[in-house]
Design a protein around this nucleic acid. Sequence first.
RNA 1: GUGGCCAUAGUUUAACGGUAGAACAGCGGGUUGUGGUCCCGCUAGCGAGGGUUCAACUCCCUCUGGUCACCCCA
Length: 461
Amino acid sequence: MGRKPKINQNQPKKNTNNSESFKKADNKIVAQKQPKEITRLRGMRDILPDEYRYGDYVVSVAERICRAYGFAKTEIPALEQVSLYERSTGKQTDVVSKEMYAFVDKDNERVALRPEATPGLVRSYIEHGLFNLPAQPVRLLWTGSLFRREKPQAGRYRQFSQVDVEMFGEASPVADAQLITMGYLILKELGIAAAVQINSIGDAADRDEYAKKLVEYFKDRKVRVLLSVDDKKRLLKNPLRVLDSKDEGTQKALAGAPQMIDHISDEARQHFVKVLEYLDEFDIPYTLNPFLVRGLDYYNRTVFEFCPEGEDGSSQGTLIGGGRYDGLVEFMGGRPTPALGWALGVDRVVLKLKEKAPQSAGPAMDAPDIFLAQLGDAAKRKAMVFFEELRVKGYRVAQNFVKDNLKTQLEQANKLGVKLTLILGQKEIMDNTILIRDMESGMQEVFDFAKVYEEIDKRLK
RNA sequence: GUGGCCAUAGUUUAACGGUAGAACAGCGGGUUGUGGUCCCGCUAGCGAGGGUUCAACUCCCUCUGGUCACCCCA
């Protein structure tokens, strides 16, 4: 919050305005540039260790569960051709048309920082012929940063992280249900109360047909007057988006509107019913939301969103969002390949995690059990060797060989919350012994150095 | 991108149109090779620029950043 310190390029701290001129070697007077503050760019942030552990924890839980379901970690470029996103995400979408960091590179190529992971993963799938992989369907797992030039807000940065899963080559509704299950399990393990909303938007043809019906419906003066200005625009640009409008008038107007579910093909409906059956089987609670549509062009059939309980989603509350995109691989130049996926917004999940469990045990720092303190040069040398030995044997040990006095070292040991502090000094070196101090009781005893492992094992139990 | 609210040490904050106060953190002490609790000291701040005024951290404007709603999305 608030101001962050600025890095002033000039040494004297107070005199910021010393834009003096100075003489160069050739005696020409050159105006010195105003010292510019170097700060973070808007919507960008540094994630410091204390904060980082939350995201780290979320990612580790998500990745572990995804791996268990057969997904394998993948990396893709942060920079791609602009046309990749224009074609897949959709040239008309806000993500591509307004929010993408796109520029012309030196070799005259239009490139963009990835605003989404799915297009890159689809491109990668096609480009490497992953449909030839022995293990089908192909299950890809990706974690990383994405870039969107939006107006920043809490849980919404211009560089943000997602965990993405994508499954290629599987048309069965089991796949839909499994993916939703994975999302459910991740949030559950993180202790976040979230509910999944689900809908089917049918196939591309159904959508077009339905969109026409919707436009038709709103031609009626009586319902049209209820629409907000925004929604009238939407009706022209992307009629389906009117469905999840937050506007009260629009919601009233929708009361008598044709339902999407009545306008999707029998196949798509069958598929949807199956998905729901499997979810029932897995005992995953869900809410049918006939107004759920998603903003990206490529979705078809099943779409879903996990929102924190008590929040009716659709805003920036969405924790996980995804769906099917059976047509995308072919549209992008690959073979016809059914596919689906979701994305988890790491920053938003972290926000919820901190809300629910500010100091939960999960995202704790790597807490050491032992602190190794040293006094005197000879002891330091021995301690350095000993420390490495402890590390290799798997003990979680902290140290500060840079500080020489014992007081400081014990202070640090205390702050780290270790159970034991081992103390090596001149005396101990001479006697070939070591001190073991129990940090809670403050009791300490001398032990034969040879017995140190035996003793710490006993005490760490 | 549109609109509202906000901006004080590293962090959380107090006050006032008249010299910015605290807590926590950090650093150093309370004699030597012993932490936590306690005591003392030190470091450190009005986001930037302009205006009004004898005087601005305080009032006004602009910018920057944050935040909330909309838009959009994870």
